[in-house]
Design a binder for these strands. Structure first.
Length: 291
RNA sequence: GCAGGGUUAGUGAAGUGGUCAAACACAACAGACUGUAAAUCUGUCGGCAUACGCCUUCGAAAGUUCGAAUCUUUCACCCUGCA
């Protein structure tokens, strides 16, 4: 039998990627790798809509609960992890599914990004202490290309660390990848996001965030995920619970739009609605089984 | 009924005679983004125009003025104090 394909399912938050992938993985012997920058954190379950215990029992899931909130986990870490997992899953004769909304994580794997050198902690601290203007001047003096958004301090710092703006990647998806985007009608997506906002709180969002806040630092990158920072404000008494829910739906919508902007640049995505995507991938997987 | 305060662009909110299509914030829309990416950053944001610019706005109407979101009068609605 030929090497199993890599099924890549992308789309904005709340588009139904996970449900689709679980369904297909059950039927075709798949294992799911979550390409999600928040579900890698332990304890962040409700706020990140992490797959349930039942889902995980039904289909093997990877990429969840890899680190504690506050620990460092990067796109390069994910790339290493996911690439290894894809190989392992294939060795077992199963079908790897790469599913997620973190575009950088997906593309890092799919387009085999060659990441630049890792940041040196002391050098990074020094760079962060500098003003944006100083950083730009440094770039000019050192002949380093400034990123398009030169007001984006993070990017300028990274350019300095890499001594350039890094764009090393493959122009084609890695071999065997089938990339499907879940196309969702705008109003429908909005409705889904709003009802999910309500659901999270019924499921114990505040309790989860309170617990995490006690255990970890509110300021850590993990905890800046749009829901946790809002619950933090609520716990501080700055906003009401109703405002949290409303603002979360807004933040989630903004996230979805940013995700779509990222995905739009990728010409290799086959955009299909949930049903079409299920049918299309089923057919591909059946053909693969027969080959 | 009397006295006082208010009514500004999708929302909140500055502005109290010219430099006001009107600060700022939020939302919205578009975009960038290779080791923090649910992050971070950029542009647009009354209408028309690629643009010079033109047009219509600051509760309504009528005035004062060379000139009004800003001053006057009346009306409408809202809030507060006295009745």
């Amino acid at each position: 039998m030929a090497t199993p394909p890599l099924i890549v399912v992308v789309g904005p938050t709340a588009s139904g990627k996970t449900a689709l992938a679980i369904d297909l993985a059950k039927r075709f012997g798949g294992e799911i790798i979550c390409a999600d920058s928040r579900t890698v954190y332990k304890g962040m379950d409700i706020g990140t809509a992490k797959p349930s215990a039942a889902d995980r029992a039904a289909v093997p899931h990877w990429g969840l609960d890899l680190v504690e909130p506050g620990e460092r986990f990067t796109a390069a870490d994910f790339q290493r992890y996911a690439t290894a997992k894809i190989a392992e899953i294939r060795e077992r004769g199963n079908v790897p599914f790469l599913v997620g909304g973190t575009g950088l994580y997906v593309d890092g794997v799919v387009f085999a990004y060659q990441f630049g050198p890792e940041a040196d902690a002391t050098a990074r601290a020094l760079l962060e202490s500098m003003s944006l203007e100083e950083l730009i001047n440094y770039c000019v003096d050192s002949n380093i290309n400034v990123p398009e958004n030169k007001n984006n301090k993070r990017y300028v710092i990274r350019a300095i660390e890499q001594k350039t703006v890094n764009e090393k990647r493959s122009s084609e998806p890695i071999h065997g990848a089938i990339i499907v985007g879940i196309a969702t009608e705008r109003n429908e997506l909005r409705t889904r996001i709003e009802s999910r906002s309500e659901q999270l709180f019924q499921d114990g969002m505040v309790e989860e965030a309170t617990m995490l806040g006690k255990k970890y630092d509110w300021d850590s990158e993990a905890m800046t995920g749009n829901i946790y920072r809002l619950v933090h404000e609520y716990l501080l008494g700055k906003i009401t619970l109703e405002e949290v829910k409303r603002k979360f739906a807004v933040r989630d919508w903004q996230l979805a739009k940013r995700q779509l902007t990222w995905l739009r640049r990728n010409p290799h995505i086959r955009w299909l609605d949930r049903e079409q995507a299920a049918a299309f991938l089923s057919e591909r997987l059946e053909n693969w089984h027969e080959s």
